[in-house]
């Protein structure tokens, strides 16, 4: 997946910059350009829909923002998932053209808009972790598996909130499939795990 290189303005951290519309739009446009260059897919972006997505994301972000600083790190992945959910729901991108020889078994051609949204959210997530928390993101090695993308597209079509769990999965984390749209701090997650373990096992079978 193509990287983006949008860097923060001045001495602002990436996670603070990402909460500004102009940074968000520039970074997204960079992602569109990079992905188009890599895949040959031509996209068009509706600026108003993209701004609508940003506004909705910021509201969702603020609504569950943890009060304790030690939870900020855990919130990075969740916030990126919220971003993916909003992009999937608002769908600000249209595919104008795809290469004539495109292999639709490849996720980039199977669902070009979804592929672009996932690439963007994973890249922003990775940038925040790297710049603000000095941590590397480890994506799943089977990120290109069409079956996973087929399941992803079908699931988020039924309930866009599942995008939050899928992004965690793509990022190599252990997702919360039961209640993906509810942020739980590390401590609460451990307690909740006692109740949800059985259900999670059933889901992953």
């Amino acid at each position: 997946m193509t990287e983006i290189a949008e860097v923060p303005r001045g001495d602002r951290s990436v996670h603070k910059s990402a909460q500004h519309l102009r940074w968000f739009i520039r970074a997204f446009e960079q992602q569109v350009e990079a992905t188009a260059r890599e895949t040959g897919v031509e996209y068009s972006v509706d600026l108003q829909l993209l701004t609508d997505a940003f506004a909705e994301w910021i509201k969702a972000f603020d609504a569950q923002k943890p009060p304790r600083e030690e939870d900020n790190h855990a919130y990075v992945g969740f916030a990126a998932g919220l971003m993916l959910r909003t992009l999937v729901r608002r769908n600000p991108v249209r595919v104008v053209a795809t290469p004539s020889d495109a292999d639709t078994a490849n996720p980039a051609y199977f669902w070009p808009e979804g592929y672009l949204y996932v690439a963007f959210c994973l890249n922003v997530r990775g940038l925040v972790l790297e710049h603000d928390f000095q941590e590397e993101q480890h994506r799943r090695s089977d990120l290109q598996d069409t079956r996973t993308w087929w399941s992803f597209k079908e699931n988020v079509g039924e309930d866009p909130s599942r995008a939050i769990a899928f992004l965690e999965y793509f990022a190599g984390e252990d997702p919360d499939w039961a209640m993906p749209d509810l942020f739980r701090t590390g401590r609460v997650r451990q307690i909740a795990g006692r109740f949800y373990t059985e259900e999670l096992v059933r889901l992953s079978d």
């Binding site: 519309l21 102009r22 108003q48 701004t51 609508d52 940003f54 506004a55």
Partner: peptide, 24 residues
């Protein structure tokens, strides 16, 4: 809002300010 250092970027921020206003 925060200022930009090029006129084209200022025009862009104006467009974004309108888009955000419209979104909300």
């Amino acid at each position: 809002a925060d200022r930009e250092s090029a006129m084209g970027d200022e025009e862009r921020v104006l467009e974004l300010a309108y888009a955000l206003t419209h979104a909300l």
